[in-house]
């Protein structure tokens, strides 16, 4: 079973500051979403509202058609894992797991134990004495074993070393295929995980910049390289995200598909068209002053 998420005109303020401003989204259930944004773009705030960690100041949130805040039927379907976790520091690993097991309706104890062993988490150690990577691994284990129809990882895996991260991606993917549900992964390191995402959502300064299928977003960016004058002429009127010069040569990153007509024109003028990695596209889109659609 999957749950759809719908967000309309969402606003969250901290005092006078607006952390999230007028965000509207539809996230059909059963997909892996990537939530991207620079630090302070409102990712965590948005996710906190989805998980009912806080109530929105404006707008509407619907999960499975219902308002989630303080709704017992919904909050136990949404598991939100943050890097530092929320379990009291004095708890032992096994207490934290026992608590989680008692709360999540679809808890998979076998999986939890397998992951604890896999990440070599000592059952008797207290949370406060775990390393950053171990805390992350505990979060990952609890998040995956919760089998919550909506499972959210907020940059948890950043504290893990590369082998642990890769095994996390594998576990997540495998479990997702066996038990389809919604995953939302927030990150600002895109290269490693972008292949996992079916859709990408980009927030910038509290606003929704775009929501798009990862594969079509990949095709949105084109780099045009050639003699500066020619490139300028070609790119006039296009949505330019960034440019670089090297001597008389120039390379611009253009957002939006060119279409066959323009591509032919570029080839005819001897301009080189190249792909733009998702990470670069993200950097260009969220650069200050850039990134208007």
């Amino acid at each position: 079973m999957t749950l759809d998420i719908e967000v309309k005109g969402l606003g969250v303020s901290y005092g006078r500051e607006k952390a999230v401003d007028g965000v509207s989204l539809k996230l059909p259930g059963g997909k892996i979403y990537g939530l991207l944004g620079r630090n302070g773009s409102g990712k965590t705030t948005l996710l906190s509202v989805l998980a009912s960690f806080r109530e929105q100041s404006e707008g509407e949130v619907r999960i499975g058609g219902e308002a989630p805040f303080e709704n017992a039927a919904i909050v136990n379907q949404v598991c939100f894992i943050q890097e530092n976790g929320h379990i009291a520091e004095g708890y032992r690993v096994k207490d934290a797991v026992k608590l989680a097991a008692s709360c999540w309706p679809n808890w998979d104890e076998a999986m939890a134990q397998r992951l604890l062993e896999h990440y070599q988490l000592p059952q008797k150690k207290r949370i406060q004495s775990l390393s950053r990577g171990m805390k992350s691994a505990l979060g990952v284990a609890v998040g995956l074993a919760s089998r919550a129809p909506i499972t959210i990882f907020d940059e948890v895996y950043l504290g893990m070393d590369a082998p642990s991260r890769y095994s996390f991606y594998e576990e997540l993917l495998r479990d997702y295929m066996e038990h389809p549900r919604t995953f939302i992964l927030s990150t600002h390191l895109i290269d490693e995980v972008s292949n996992l995402f079916e859709e990408v959502i980009i927030l910038d300064q509290g606003r929704l910049l775009l929501q798009e299928e990862t594969e079509s977003l990949r095709q949105r960016g084109v780099s045009v390289t050639g003699p500066a004058a020619l490139v300028d002429e070609f790119a006039a009127g296009l949505n330019i995200l960034g440019e670089q010069r090297l001597g008389g040569m120039k390379s611009v990153t253009v957002y939006g598909e060119l279409g066959p007509e323009r591509e032919r024109q570029a080839h005819a003028q001897g301009l080189e068209l190249g792909p733009v990695p998702l990470q670069d596209l993200f950097v260009h889109l969220t650069k200050k002053g850039g990134g208007k659609r």
């Binding site: 997909k31 991606y169 295929m177 995402f197």
Partner: peptide, 17 residues
């Protein structure tokens, strides 16, 4: 599709496409 996705660590929807 799933074997493919697991092997190459990609979203199964992408493999299916």
């Amino acid at each position: 599709t799933n074997q493919y996705a697991a092997f190459y660590r990609i979203n199964p929807a992408t493999a299916a496409k």
